[in-house]
Design a protein around this nucleic acid. Structure first.
Lengths: 123, 123
DNA sequence: TAAAAAGTAGTAACGATTACTACTTTCAAG
DNA sequence: CTTGAAAGTAGTAATCGTTACTACTTTTTA
């Protein structure tokens, strides 16, 4: 099986067993409890590879860190400008009204859809 | 008037007069045609301040750069994994079907709503 | 008009991420 | 089982977008 290593397995496992949105450094800390001498570079490389293969998602909220999400289902991320929390929110129909979920007060929102554009699809 | 400077004015103007999603370096290049000796640090500082005050939006697509958007209305950003383009798309009702806009093939999507969470609202 | 407050230019420093190298693990064929 | 090429890793050095800092200039207030 291509891409296999116990490090990659542990990284994917770590990400799927937690329901927050850790940074690479936080994934590193978590995986170190299973593989104490794992390298931070290995974590970065495998996270990028897992994003590339679509097994996990990367989330940027503009706090200077890349965050990672093991939950690939479509949902919003409510980002608190005050404490920096990233809160999951399900989407049913009206995206804007649902952003009020659980006392959250929305101010602005940015939605990014990843895929391939018209021109690139032609090639 | 607090926060005023001709540099800040020119940066906001540059961002509102273009309909793409430039990085700080690209804004810097554009503003340099008006204020040739403006400093890159000034561009970064004012962009951060304009985001803070809600006059512009920052957009992260995970390409290693922060992008900025003068259009604050709610819309999607279609990010092509192939050429890196960031394409605007209006939202009418069903967010997922609209992502197919103009030949774009969606794969994954991340939506970030910026605001204040329940706990922070109490304080 | 004068002094405090706020902003800037230019440059140095920071730090999250990436690249690199010698070494180890995986895996398919004999 | 070997075995050897392909792929992955640990550890460290380097990269580069962004931020911090300092002396100077502009703006604002009295």
């Amino acid at each position: 099986m291509a891409n296999y290593s116990k490090q990659r397995e542990a990284i994917l496992n770590e990400l799927q067993n937690r329901c927050d949105h850790p940074t690479a450094a936080q994934v590193y800390e978590g995986v170190r409890r299973v593989i104490p001498n794992i390298s931070l570079g290995t974590v970065y490389r495998n996270l990028a590879s897992l994003v590339e293969s679509g097994e996990i998602l990367s989330v940027s909220v503009g706090d200077g860190y890349e965050h990672f999400d093991g939950d690939k289902s479509f949902h919003l991320h409510l980002h608190c400008k005050c404490c920096g929390a990233i809160i999951d929110s399900r989407v049913d129909d009206d995206i804007k009204s649902l952003a009020h979920f659980d006392g959250f007060t929305p101010e602005t929102s940015v939605c990014v859809v990843y895929g391939t554009c018209k021109n690139c699809n032609k090639q």
